[in-house]
Amino acid sequence: MIRIRSLIPILKQLLPLAYSAQKYGRELSVVKDRTASIRRNDLLAFVVLRNEAVRIPYFLSYYRKLGVKHFLFIDNASDDHFMAIISEQADCSVWHTNASYKDAKYGVHWLNHLLKKYGCGHWCLTLDPDEFLIYPHCDSRTLTELTAYLDQEGKASFFSIMLDMYPEGNIDQAHYRAGENPLSVCPWFDGTGYYQDKRPNYGEWWLRGGVRRRAFFADQPWQAPALNKTVLVKWRWYYGYIASTHIVWPNFLNRPHFHDTLAPTGCLLHFKYLALLRDKVEEEMQRQQHYAGSREYQRYLDGLNSQQTLWTSASTQFRNWQQCVELGLMNVGRWF
């Protein structure tokens, strides 16, 4: 019936993913386990972080409001007051590891391990603490209403584009305080200048552009980081993230739309360019734990040192999700 030969390419992807998830999963030690309170069909959020405590209060309140029922954190050797904040929260579980972020393929193997263990059958968000998902009608409909719609349409993932937000002035001057909406500090983004191509090997869309490309990769724009993200997936045991949350296996999960009509897609607001960036960049340059020899961080450091401002007269101030639809960065699809 099923030819063995057709299984080989599938196993070639599946087995290394499963093996790494198992292997690197052993590096995680549980600190706070509240997973017993997870109910059927709950929306879950999975986060890897290091020294991001200041962002946590607003992050939690934002996603709780959208309907996330449980947060699963992987704390990679934080030395700030993260545990003090998180120990009061009833809907958070924490794993701790001092192992190398780079060796675990930038945290992906840890995430795959937890996703497999707790995420199966649930809609799962996989996020960084500086990423905020917006989607069509996000001011009047919850994420669980979106996932119910995707369930009804038979779609198992939600495609989004990452929009880098930046302040009007110097990055070093953009101070963020815990609990504050980062939009009040960084309301600007690039409304144009995005590029989409089909990537040959994974058959998924490859989006690049925005402020990162023009400000930090102006001489080699083709090296600019990918902006396509599939952060919301209805997880099954054999799924796995391959490269951060840009690519997830199997490939059909990376497809933005239905085979015949358009599906809704979202935008992931990314608040990296705050005054917090300098500490982070200096630390990460020491640790060398990021992609491609941390070349991205080297450029951030150069940019910070030359007092570069990201804002230009062509920047767009963020208003709401309708604006993203107007700019052609978000689709409503057929979600009436």
Partner: peptide, 22 residues
């Protein structure tokens, strides 16, 4: 009105994840 324009994308507006002519 909604379904007439939304099912295949709003005319003359970029659709993320769709391109007829690269």
């Amino acid at each position: 009105k909604f379904s007439a324009i939304q099912w295949r994308g709003i005319p003359n507006r970029r659709v993320i994840g769709k391109q007829n002519d690269a």
